[in-house]
């Protein structure tokens, strides 16, 4: 069993015939602990929990920590780091169009007069 694993890992690093990269379990364990630590961090810097207050940056900080966590999941757990770059390109295409949607919605809402006082 152990031999199998070693052989498979060697195969993964050698970029075998099928191009399957086998990520070693130790990497997954490291990512798991990094994700749990970042979860603890995002809780620790939240105002309702600890009273830490960075003003208007509170949401930004929470979002950035979430983005780092998502990158870890995407890169290692989902294997985008090792995959064909085409899959990465597809992912960023999705994100790009999400940003287009966000940008035009923001432009629409925040260029309206008296948007703060209605509703």
């Amino acid at each position: 069993m152990a031999q199998n694993k070693v052989a498979a890992e060697a195969h993964g690093h050698g970029d075998g015939h099928a191009g399957h990269h086998i990520v070693p379990m130790s990497t997954y364990v490291k990512v798991l602990f990094a994700l749990l630590a970042l979860t603890a961090l995002t809780v620790a810097v939240a105002r309702p929990v600890s009273g830490f207050d960075a003003g208007i940056f509170n949401t930004l900080i929470a979002f950035l920590i979430a983005a780092v966590k998502a990158s870890l999941v995407l890169g290692i757990f989902m294997g985008l780091k090792y995959d064909k770059k085409l899959n990465l390109a597809i992912f960023f295409t999705g994100v790009f169009f999400l940003l287009v949607m966000l940008l035009f919605c923001l432009l629409d809402i925040y260029t309206r007069v008296h948007v703060q006082s209605t509703l």
């Binding site: 809780v43 920590i65 979430a66 757990f77 989902m78």
Partner: peptide
């Protein structure tokens, strides 16, 4: 199927701070 499950995880990673920790 694993990729789908990880995406569900990623969405929650964003939902948790945005819904529970803002303010």
């Amino acid at each position: 199927v694993g990729l789908f499950w990880h995406l569900v995880d990623i969405i929650w990673i964003f939902l948790f701070p945005l819904l529970y920790l803002v303010g």
